[in-house]
């Protein structure tokens, strides 16, 4: 299929038509959102932060293996849990996490999962979340 070249019109008419169509956007609603005051539309499946259920985690280290950046490292945590005899729990470095959601997909007990929260700004050296911090809300972690 041959594409059609635009027809040759009278000079300047096209320019003025373009100017009018640009100027007619003046009274349209802006597309941008004033972020901290107004929240943007958040789709249901939007995911960012990794969370953990300590009781469900069996310490299988699958999430550590599948993480492409090595953001997840297993850590020893003294805790009473009959299903997790090795007492290994993941901790996450959010500085390198790319939110590929592989860990959520591979977890056999859905202990590790991703949540809606995305306002996780921290200082540079505190991106490392311990297993206990992963179970908490973002607000509690910041305290």
């Amino acid at each position: 299929m041959e594409v059609k070249e635009p027809k040759k019109g009278i000079p300047l008419v096209g320019i003025i038509a373009g100017m009018i169509s640009v100027a007619s956007h003046l009274f349209k609603k802006p597309l941008t959102v004033q972020y901290p005051e107004q929240k943007p539309y958040e789709p249901e499946r939007f995911r960012f932060r990794i969370s953990l259920k300590l009781d469900d985690c069996v310490g299988c280290t699958l999430c550590e293996q599948v993480c492409p950046n090595g953001s997840i490292k297993m850590e020893k945590l003294e805790r009473e849990n009959p299903r997790n005899k090795r007492m290994l729990y993941p901790d996450v470095n959010f500085g390198t996490c790319t939110v590929c959601r592989n860990c959520e997909e591979i977890c056999p007990t859905t202990a590790i999962y991703l949540t809606h929260e995305f306002e996780t700004s921290r200082t540079r050296n505190s991106f490392l979340y311990s297993p206990v911090e992963l179970t908490m809300d973002e607000k509690e972690v910041k305290k």
Binding site: L31, P43, R45, F46, R47, T98, V99, R101, E105, L114
Partner: peptide, 29 residues
């Protein structure tokens, strides 16, 4: 502005906007 609508559809489908990682081996996520 138009692209933003497409990215919203991506987010709706798979949870992230640009680096989607939506498809997986043997199907979709």
């Amino acid at each position: 502005g138009e692209r933003e609508k497409i990215l919203t559809i991506f987010t709706e489908a798979c949870g992230s906007r640009q680096e989607t990682n939506y498809m997986s081996i043997g199907g979709v996520y």
